[in-house]
Amino acid sequence: MASLNCALEISGLRKSYGGRSVISGIGFSVPAGACFGILGPNGAGKTTTLRCCLGLTPPDEGKILLGGHSIPDGACAARARVGVVPQFDNLDPDFTVNENLLVYSRYFGLKKAEMRQRIPGLLDFAGLTDKENARVEALSGGMKRRLTLARALVNDPDILFLDEPTTGLDPQARHLIWDRLKQLVAQGKTLILTTHFMEEAERLCERLIVLDHGQIVAEGNPHELIASQIEPNVIEIFGENAVAWAKARRALCQRLEIAGETAYFYCKDTAPVREALDKERALHSLHRAANLEDVFIKLTGRELRD
């Protein structure tokens, strides 16, 4: 199984609910051993795509191959080699950390003696060694997330699905999860993750797709996407009359975006904008390199999506 070139292959996937199209014909493939990102605003079709991949939602059209198994027919066999970290923790609140792992391993038909040997390693990986007998209710949000990650690894999966794995975590907890995910990729596992954190995608993903309104609007390596889709520099300007000031100087850069009271100058060369700014005392500015979030916003727009 591990020698397969493609962990996940999707083509012509379509799904609609009550006449409303949620996924409108998408296709992509995830090479084995890669970390692959699925990005998109709320309602873009990320979760539905994941559910289709796992055989939890039958697609209207399209083909899905997960770990070499055709989905949904081969979903049970495919899921034996897959781990899932869901968006919201669904650990068993009545159980201890240890029991959560043990009970979950039974769903995979794993042997108890073997699990007893493996659990210390999983707990160590999740940084929960001394919490073995703690009840889930007593864990912090970050610990719960790590336990969910350890639980997703009970069957030593080839492919791991992570649905917004660090949402709601503090920076320390988030960095720890990122570190563990990198370790998993180094072990040769395939990671497929959805996220709203562009920084997360930029750090972890070798390839990603951006979904919007059920369609793929961009695909590639995050750094290549930044290089190809957007100007390399951004100057954000805010303060009194910033918007009016910026609109009058639109010609100083390649692209100008206004959001609320802030103006974003996207430039190849920042010198003209900076020179103009030097004369303005009332304006505040922030000069930074363009990042994946800028690409995301350019592709999917600034308006709210929920």
Binding site: R106, Y107, F108, G109, L110, K111, R118, D156
Partner: peptide
């Protein structure tokens, strides 16, 4: 993470006539 895991036979499958209900 290490050697391939061994699984009990008979699990998993589907429905009333399998043993998937046991876990």
């Amino acid at each position: 993470m290490s050697a391939p895991l061994s699984r009990k036979p008979g699990i998993p499958n589907a429905g009333l006539l399998s043993f998937g209900w046991i876990p």
